[in-house]
């Protein structure tokens, strides 16, 4: 029996080794493909957008129809404002729900909520826009920054809920017990011990969600709406880079097309910078924990 096994092992050896190699190559090609696609997109953006990226792009308002020059200063600010509003809506709700699911909820309820968040995650982004239009824009009788931030914030909720639940759950059980055994009320254990332990993962989750909504156009179409000047109040329409890109891209002017590319490039860089900043935050916390 032992002989037989050994023999068939030998007989299949060549085949095994070939398959091993083939699999490595296939997987490598997949990875290379991913990189390649990303690279192509970036290259495209840089090739077409870079020429329009001058100081004026960041400091000037858009020019009137057909005129060349001008910039996206208002849209850049608008995107930051909208993202801030979105974080204000999405983070407390998403994080709160995630913590509740992990720490308090009964199985049945938790499962229901989890299922709903998955459904919510799959809802087309324009639906969030329509919803925000119905509950914010119509009653307030005006497009507004608030309604846009609200729509984006809602979109962030399911993602943040799921990631925070996961990372909060991963905090070792002993740590909770240690907190409770010290006579801390449960909410203190959560805010003072569990959340700081899970902060790295939670931050990453928030960043992923933020990066996803930063480029959304559809939910802003009839909420933030966009404009061509600086917005004075959160109750008024506000510009956003994706909206501006959209408007420019569908226009017939080649200068606007170039600006649209530049806008996309700036958007990616903004997301990139926010991410780097978050990573740095997580990294420096880790380093501190390790005593460096």
């Amino acid at each position: 029996m032992k002989d037989l096994v050994l023999k068939s092992f030998d007989a299949t050896r060549l085949r095994r080794e070939i398959w091993d190699k083939v699999m490595v190559v296939v997987l490598f090609l997949c990875a290379a493909c991913v990189l390649f696609i990303l690279f192509i997109i970036l290259w495209h953006l840089i090739a077409r957008g870079l020429s329009s990226l001058n100081p004026a792009f960041f400091t000037h308002l858009p020019k009137a129809v057909g005129e060349s020059g001008g910039g996206m200063a208002n849209a850049i600010i608008g995107t930051f404002v909208l993202l801030l509003l979105a974080v204000g809506v999405g983070v407390p709700l998403g994080l709160g729900a995630g913590v509740y699911l992990s720490e308090y909820a009964h199985q049945r309820f938790a499962q229901t909520v989890r299922f709903m968040t998955d459904v919510l995650n799959g809802v087309p982004s324009i639906v969030f826009g329509i919803f925000s239009y119905t509950v914010c824009v119509l009653p307030m009788k005006s497009f507004s920054a608030v309604s846009g931030g609200f729509a984006l914030g809602l979109m962030m909720i399911p993602m943040i809920t799921r990631t925070s639940e996961q990372f909060v759950k991963m905090v070792p059980h002993q740590l909770r017990e240690a907190g409770l055994a010290l006579g801390l009320p449960k909410w203190r254990v959560i805010t003072g011990i569990i959340l700081p332990s899970a902060i790295g993962g939670i931050m990453t989750g928030i960043m992923v969600a933020l990066a996803r909504v930063a480029g959304e156009t559809a939910p802003l179409l009839f909420t933030a709406f966009g404009n061509l000047h600086y917005t004075q109040s959160l109750m008024q329409p506000i510009a956003a880079i994706p909206l501006q890109i959209f408007n420019y891209a569908v226009s017939p002017y080649s200068d606007w097309h170039r600006q649209a590319w530049a806008g996309a490039l700036v958007l990616i860089v903004i997301v990139f910078i926010i991410n780097i900043w978050a990573q740095y935050f997580v990294y420096s916390r880790k380093r501190w924990s390790a005593g460096k």
Binding site: E177, L180, A181, L182, S289
Partner: peptide, 26 residues
């Protein structure tokens, strides 16, 4: 009650805080 009856576990369980804050937190 738990404040009156403290507990130390098998696996040490420092909080993710500074040394000072671990002691001062309670």
């Amino acid at each position: 009650l738990r404040r009156k009856v403290g507990m130390v576990f098998q696996k040490s369980t420092p909080f993710p805080k500074s040394i000072y804050d671990n002691v001062a937190y309670g």
